[in-house]
Write a protein that binds this DNA or RNA. Sequence first.
DNA 1: TTGCGTGCAAAGGTTTTGCATGGCA
DNA 2: TGCCATGCAAAACCTTTGCACGCAA
Lengths: 143, 143
Amino acid sequence: MSGSNGYKTKQREAILQYMIDHRTSHVTVNQISDYFAAQGASVGVTTIYRHLEKLVEQGCVRKYTVDAQTGACFQYAGQEKRCREHFHLKCERCGVLIHLECSHLDELYRHIYSEHGFELDPFRTVFYGLCRSCRMAEHGGNT
Amino acid sequence: MSGSNGYKTKQREAILQYMIDHRTSHVTVNQISDYFAAQGASVGVTTIYRHLEKLVEQGCVRKYTVDAQTGACFQYAGQEKRCREHFHLKCERCGVLIHLECSHLDELYRHIYSEHGFELDPFRTVFYGLCRSCRMAEHGGNT
DNA sequence: TTGCGTGCAAAGGTTTTGCATGGCA
DNA sequence: TGCCATGCAAAACCTTTGCACGCAA
């Protein structure tokens, strides 16, 4: 389970590059598919799903399910292993992904493990909510 | 935005009552439908969806989507705003959704809010990981 | 050549919509 | 009576799976 993660194909490269290029936001399978279709280099949705799934397993990409109708959202998270050691905050409004390194969360991990028998997966787990600036905008502004 | 939210029907009463009775946990549309079917007082899924949608708009019921395949989960929240103290644990292996009410998490909420400026959304946030039994099976058994 | 990668088609699931009927006010 | 509520059927949607073909190694 190391370097040989399969063949190097055009589709694989294209999808990975797309995810990297759009790493500042999250994207849906439809967006990716539409993008490739517009480029003339159409890629089947099945292939997109399969590659995304692998990337999620590898830890390069994060998957979020916001709404059943919207479909899943994916976002490139990078190769860095350090991301395994902390948690992430995802703003529901602007979509920003915040990396949170905090000893409080280590404690949380231990607590949930010892008290509730549940082994948290920090990589997979994402905290949803409102980031500071969006909270300000929401409380101070219009509807 | 007050009393006259439509007619008072058997189905409406039944669904609301069901949500209140099960307010300590989250339910899916399928669960509600199956329950009524078992009672002999079958209610169409369409009706369930429509009432749930209204209740969500009114703010009485919370909706959150864990997984596109599983479908949405609903939970009665009442009129009170302070139902912020419970989170959900989702096992990545068997898929079970655990309802976790724990004062530790209330503390976590306050900490992330005051120290990191992030307002957590407990209804959308789901902790992924391995539940006790799956962890046992994984460490002790086969593949 | 071998075996994974690809993409079409179909199946699986949840959710929504159209429409005729039924029930509340 | 008038109008909303109901529920069946069908559609729309995202996602997964089966299978034959293509392509990387």
